[in-house]
C-alpha cells in the first residue's frame, strides 16, 4: 500500500493551491531556471562503456583537481565497492555484474544529472544554483553559504561538500564543463571517452537517438531511457541492458523533484496575502478584546 509519489504531489499541489486560492506561479526572486528547447545533454550508453575511467581523469584535469598518472586509472580494483561523486572526483564509474554475459560487466558513469527542474535550484537559500540555457546546472560559489540544503534536496544524491575546509568550503559537483561548453566546447569527459559511450548533443535529438538505438537493438537494450522523464527529465540520460535499479540509479516518478514544496511555499506566500490577512485577523481580535475589557473596566 505504498503511497505513490504522484498521489503525494497531487495532494500537496491541491493544498498549496488551496492555501493560496491561486495557481502556484514562479516568484519574482526565483533564480535562473531556463528550459531552452535547444538545451544540451549527454546520452550514456552503458552497453558501450568499458570502465576505462578516462572520464574521471579528464574531469579532474578540467576542474583543477590533481589527476595523478593515467596508468592509475587502469586499476580496476576500485570497482569492488560502489563509489559516489566526491569533492575530488566529480564523476566516477561503477561496475556491475552482467548476468547475461559475465565477461562484459556493465560500467555506469555517475555525475550530476543536470535536471530540467532541479531540486537544488529550488532549494538553494541564496539562489546560487541556476539552470543555464545550455542545460548546465551550475552554482555561484560567491553566494553559497554552505547550508547543504541542495544535498538534502538532490534526488540523485550528487552534490558533495568540502567538510574539511574551515574557510570557503564549497559545494562540489559536475558543472557539465560549463566553462568549456559556453564557448562551444564539449565536456571534458565526452571529449576523452575512447568508446564514445557518451554522446553530447541537443537533448531532444539525444532522446530520438536513444529510442532509435533501442528500436534497432531490442535484444540489447531494455526499453527505457533513464532520465527522459525521471523527475521531469534530466540533461544526462542513460541506456542500459538491464534494469536501472540494479545499476544504482534510483527509481523516480516523472514529477519534477521540487514540485510539492514549491507549490506549498508559494501557497503560503502568495503576494503576502495569507500573512497579511493573518495579521489583520489577529489585530482585529486584539482590538475587539481590548474594547470589551475597557467597557468592563468602565462599569
Amino acid at each position: 500500500m505504498k503511497q505513490s509519489r504522484r498521489d503525494f504531489f497531487k495532494t500537496a499541489g491541491l493544498i498549496g493551491a488551496g492555501a493560496s486560492g491561486l495557481n502556484p506561479e514562479k516568484a519574482k526572486a526565483a533564480p535562473v531556471n531556463i528550459i531552452s528547447d535547444d538545451r544540451m545533454g549527454v546520452l550514456i550508453d552503458t552497453t558501450v562503456c568499458i570502465g576505462c575511467r578516462r572520464c574521471e581523469y579528464a574531469c579532474k584535469g578540467a576542474h583543477d583537481i590533481p589527476q595523478g598518472s593515467l596508468q592509475d586509472y587502469d586499476d580496476r580494483s576500485v570497482f569492488e565497492k560502489l563509489r559516489r561523486p566526491e569533492i575530488d572526483a566529480l564523476t566516477v564509474v561503477n561496475e556491475f555484474t552482467n548476468s547475461k554475459d559475465p565477461d562484459t560487466p556493465i560500467d555506469v558513469k555517475v555525475q550530476c544529472m543536470h535536471c530540467d527542474y532541479p531540486a537544488c535550484v529550488s532549494a538553494c537559500i541564496v539562489g546560487a544554483i541556476s539552470k543555464q540555457e545550455n542545460g548546465s546546472v551550475i552554482w555561484d560559489t560567491d553566494k553559497c553559504i554552505g547550508c547543504r540544503y541542495c544535498m538534502i534536496a538532490c534526488p540523485f544524491q550528487v552534490p558533495a561538500f568540502e567538510y574539511n575546509k574551515a574557510l570557503q568550503p564549497d559545494i562540489v559537483k559536475c558543472d557539465f564543463c560549463f566553462d568549456r561548453t559556453k564557448d562551444g566546447g564539449i565536456p571534458a569527459c565526452v571529449e576523452i571517452c575512447p568508446m564514445e559511450a557518451l554522446t553530447y548533443g541537443k537533448r531532444f535529438e539525444l532522446v530520438k537517438l536513444a529510442h532509435k538505438k533501442i528500436a534497432n537493438n531490442p535484444d540489447k537494450y531494455i526499453d527505457h531511457v533513464y532520465g527522459e522523464t525521471e523527475v521531469g527529465g534530466t540533461s544526462w540520460m542513460y541506456l542500459a541492458s538491464k534494469d536501472f535499479k540494479e545499476l544504482a540509479l534510483p527509481e523516480h516518478s516523472d514529477e519534477p523533484a521540487p514540485g510539492a514544496s514549491e507549490a506549498l511555499q508559494h501557497g503560503i506566500f502568495k503576494y503576502f496575502i495569507p500573512p497579511a490577512s493573518l495579521f489583520a485577523l489577529l489585530g482585529g481580535i486584539m482590538w475587539l478584546g481590548k474594547n470589551k475589557n475597557e467597557s468592563e473596566l468602565g462599569e
Binding site: 516568484a27 526572486a29 532549494a123 537559500i125 541564496v126 539562489g127 511555499q265 503560503i268 506566500f269
Partner: peptide, 11 residues
C-alpha cells in the same frame, strides 16, 4: 539580499 522565493529554507 540574495533571494530565492522558491526556497523553503529562504523563507
Amino acid at each position: 539580499y540574495m533571494w530565492n522565493g522558491n526556497s523553503v529554507m529562504f523563507e
